[in-house]
Amino acid sequence: MVRLPGDNSEPGKLRAALFALLVHAAFLALLVFGLNWKNEVSEMMSVDLWAELPRHPVEPPSSAAKVIPEPVKVKPQPQQKTQPQPQPVIKAAPPPVRKPDIALKDKTEKPQLKEEVKKPEPVKKEVPKKEPTKKPVEKLVPKEEVKKPEPVKKVEQKTEKKEDVRQQAEAQKQAQQREREAAAAKAERARADGEIEKYREMIKAKIRSRIIMPPDLPGNPAVEFTVTLLPGGDVLTVTLRKSSGYTAFDEAVERAIYLAKPLPLPPDPGLFNAFRNLDLKVYYRE
């Protein structure tokens, strides 16, 4: 028989391949985009944000700690101990940059800083020539002026002390060592106090962030609570010590205390005793 040339010609082989590709692309797209492959655990997103950190109690102990270990190498331990503790401050600080919620807080903070920088300007406008060159310098100066004097003085004292130490006898050295130890203990105590104060502020701030304030209370009432804490930061009991006179406000604060748990506690378990029975005073207005 005559084989007809049209026998093998099938219509749209290429077109069929194209359609097949299309079907698979659609299926793949369905798999990739149609399903929510990533399961985000949203409950774990508890981030404590501190717009303001109590800086003053932290700084002196760190400078004191740096002073001590220079001559005596026996006490590097306090340095090591003090180093990890500032870290929570660093960790807590970065989140504000990412979160839009905090962007508002940052904005409120920035004007304050700007005011500080701008304030000197009107005074220095009397000297208009130096303005362009000085501006960057001036911005740096006020900060350094505040911080620098302390360490400089201490270093000076140090050098004087060193000279004395060389002149004196070994017995005197021992006496000095004792003095240093005492000073170190003092610094340690000051540092602990600063730490306690810092965390007290953090606890207050965290509770405050959870309060749903009842609207329109007259004046600035204050409520006082005694909060019994557990070592993990859990709240055991909350007892009303002094009512503000407005039950709505009292209850709002009490609820906020429970909502705020776990409360931030210093990583050093030795400091927990200061938090076991925590007296809190919360004002209606800050």
Binding site: E10, P11, G12, K13, R15, A16, A17, F19, A20, L21, V23, H24
Partner: peptide, 21 residues
């Protein structure tokens, strides 16, 4: 399976065109 799926879809479309014609 991907290969099988692709080829079978190719044939499905080819046959569809052929039979329709």
């Amino acid at each position: 399976l991907l290969l099988a799926s692709f080829v079978s879809w190719w044939f499905i479309f080819r046959k569809l065109f052929t039979l329709r014609q």
